[in-house]
Amino acid sequence: MGRIFAAASHSVGLTPNQVSLISAGFTFTGIALLALAPASVGLGVLVWLLLAVGYAWDSADGQVARLRGGGSLAGEWLDHILDSGKLVSLHIAVAIGWYRFFDLPDPMWVLVPLGFAIVSTVTFFGMILNDLLRGKRGIPQAAETGGSSPLRSLLGLPMDYGVWCMSFVLWGMHAWFMVVYTLLAIVALVHLCAAVAVWFRKMKALG
């Protein structure tokens, strides 16, 4: 979908920054609905579609930049600012939606999405910081070094933003969504703990 959006955007003359803002429009509309509208199956499907379309547009801005001959520092900055805002606000919106519209057995359940917000924010910042510090040593970014495999991709599915988006089809089924979302949060926490140990060891070696 991102490739199709990128081709269409390039054909009508949209800039990468405009594509980024279109992505943000879809994404933050979906996030706002989680906090503002009563939870239902229909709303969950709508939120999933908005987040998924926003995700596809997010993958298109870099492709549009390459079609135009390369991106800019300002464009990269804007893309990362929007991504960071998306990650933290998504989980905060879940916390608000849980508190307002879910039949929670205990209000303390809102700590799950708030904790998820911390985990996803630290993970995102860690990856950005890794690339920044590696770049200062003239080392290629992690995305440029390869090393992925089908098995590694499958194991990483619970950490994939697209999987997080799809989980919202269960938004109207309160108990099921809480179970699935909590399991995703636990996997994200375990992944972060393991990643931090690896990242620190690699940074220590670089130093």
Rank of each mutant, 00 (worst) to 15 (best):
W109G: 05
P38V: 01
W176Q: 14
G126V: 00
A205K: 15
V64H: 08
A52Q: 12
L183F: 10
L206W: 15
L104N: 06
Y55L: 14
L104S: 08
L14N: 01
A24K: 07
A56T: 07
A74H: 05
A188L: 05
I128N: 12
Q141G: 15
Y161T: 15
P158T: 06
L50R: 05
R66A: 13
V94A: 05
L21G: 04
H80Q: 12
L154P: 01
F200D: 02
A93T: 05
L154K: 11
M166E: 06
R3H: 14
I4D: 11
K136W: 13
G115K: 00
S20Q: 07
F124K: 09
S120W: 00
G126W: 05
P105N: 09
F28H: 11
S84H: 13
L36E: 00
L189Q: 03
L21M: 15
V47G: 04
S20V: 03
P105Y: 04
L154A: 15
D131F: 01
L49H: 03
I128V: 14
G162F: 08
A93W: 01
A35R: 02
I128F: 11
A7G: 09
I81P: 00
L151C: 02
Y181N: 05
I128D: 03
L87H: 08
T15H: 10
A205S: 13
A185L: 04
L170C: 07
D79A: 08
L157D: 05
R3E: 15
V190H: 02
S23I: 02
G69A: 08
P158F: 04
I128C: 13
T123G: 10
R201S: 14
A8L: 14
I139T: 10
A6E: 09
I81A: 14
G147Y: 08
L189N: 01
D83F: 07
G146K: 13
D61C: 09
K86L: 11
A197L: 13
S72I: 09
F102W: 09
S59R: 15
W48P: 01
S148P: 00
G70P: 05
S148V: 01
G146D: 02
G54P: 05
P38C: 06
N130K: 12
F28I: 04
V179G: 08
V45C: 07
A24R: 03
G156P: 00
V163R: 09
L14I: 09
T121W: 11
C165R: 00
D131V: 06
L111Q: 06
K136V: 08
I31T: 10
Y99C: 03
Y181D: 02
V198A: 15
L21T: 06
G207V: 11
E144G: 14
P150F: 06
